[in-house]
Simulated scan of single mutants.
Amino acid sequence: MFSSPLADAPAIREPRHVPVAHVTRGAVVEGTHHGSVVVLGGDGGVRFRLGDIEAACYPRSALKPVQAVAMVRAGLPLDGELLALAMGSHSGEERHLAGARRILDLAGLSEDDLRNVPDLPYDPAVRDTWVREGRPPSRLAQNCSGKHAAMLYLCKLNGWPPEDYDDPTHPLQRVIAATVEELTGQRIAHVTVDGCGTPLFAVSLHGLARAAARIATGTRGTPESRVAGALRAHPEMASGAGRDVAALMRAVPGLLTKDGFEGVQVAALPDGRAIAVKIADGANRARVPVAAAALALAGVDPRLLTGFAGEPATGGGRPVGGVRPVAALDPSALLAPA
């Protein structure tokens, strides 16, 4: 654990986002995505910043590895693919549903005990098949079911009431909030409700990157190391086949990364280098190339990132442009170490 005093909560304000990616068509910039980016060096210092990295923001599912660390610290015995699923935003594939059922079986509970919202699978192809088969929305199919199943399992192990595990005052959520503050190094600015129903904590983009770095550098055998190892070894269980975050972890040795709704992504390397990205309009088409550019700024070999350069813009079926990070995200913009 870290003993450094916590910084004050980040300011709740309209974030001062700036352009981070352009949508080009031919020689013209057709559109612009705003956002913020932070890159940390292995020493924890800020090597690059763009936009507003200190305003309060919601990490959404990018915070799930931190939640997983909190649960492992509190006694969650999962490892491997089930621990990856516990921090996942899964696609609703059968392996994901089967994994969530396995966790519930370990707890002696069923899908009816979950408190996440029923939903169709996140992956479009899986969802289309689900609909063709006439299957209704399901709590297991909802992309956070692995996290919810793990929360229930931990409640049973610790003798905590399972029926209100999503209440911010529940012992489980108090443990998670304390871990969020410890790993981000700052007080939580605000607590609201995430899409799946569990508490959502507002921290800064800087704090989110700091938390990812602390997980990625966890000493062998610690909860941080267990979480990092599970995510690195089983990226598809935390996402799904064809998902960009899984492909990125396969492409960059040792990388751990997690995305979240509304254009958030965090990533960290084993030596503590880390990045965090927030796209103001929530667009994945900008999140992917901006995150790749931030990783290049952090020192990742750009040749490993060529598959994450962004979607092309087409005209008449031909590529005529695309989504490209702004010039400030070129590696030459890297700040000198403090």
Rank of each mutant, 00 (worst) to 15 (best):
P235R: 09
G254R: 02
L104N: 00
L305N: 06
V20C: 07
N116F: 00
V288T: 15
L76D: 05
A251L: 08
T306Q: 15
T179Q: 08
E94S: 15
H148L: 04
R324L: 14
L305M: 07
A309D: 06
G316K: 11
G35E: 03
V126I: 10
W130G: 10
P124W: 12
T198D: 03
E94Y: 06
L297E: 13
G263W: 01
G26C: 04
V23T: 10
F201P: 09
G299T: 07
G240V: 05
A9I: 04
H206E: 12
C57L: 14
G80H: 08
P171H: 06
P168E: 01
A177C: 06
S110Q: 07
L335K: 13
A9W: 05
R226M: 01
A202E: 09
L205I: 06
G134Q: 01
D271F: 02
R214Q: 00
L183C: 05
I12E: 14
R16N: 11
I275S: 03
A211P: 02
A298C: 07
A178K: 06
G272Q: 03
V37S: 06
G229C: 04
G322C: 09
P312H: 05
V300T: 03
K147D: 01
H234R: 01
H170Y: 02
T306W: 10
A202I: 10
L50E: 04
P137Q: 13
I279M: 06
G51L: 04
D271Y: 03
R60Q: 09
P331R: 04
S91Y: 14
G45Y: 00
V175P: 00
E163P: 01
G75A: 08
R324I: 13
L114K: 04
G134D: 02
G207T: 00
P137I: 06
Q67M: 10
H234A: 07
A74Q: 11
A233S: 15
S332P: 08
G242S: 07
H206L: 15
V38W: 07
L200G: 11
K156M: 11
R243M: 09
E133I: 07
L120F: 14
V323S: 12
V66Q: 06
I53F: 10
S4K: 13
G307R: 13
A246N: 05
R101A: 11
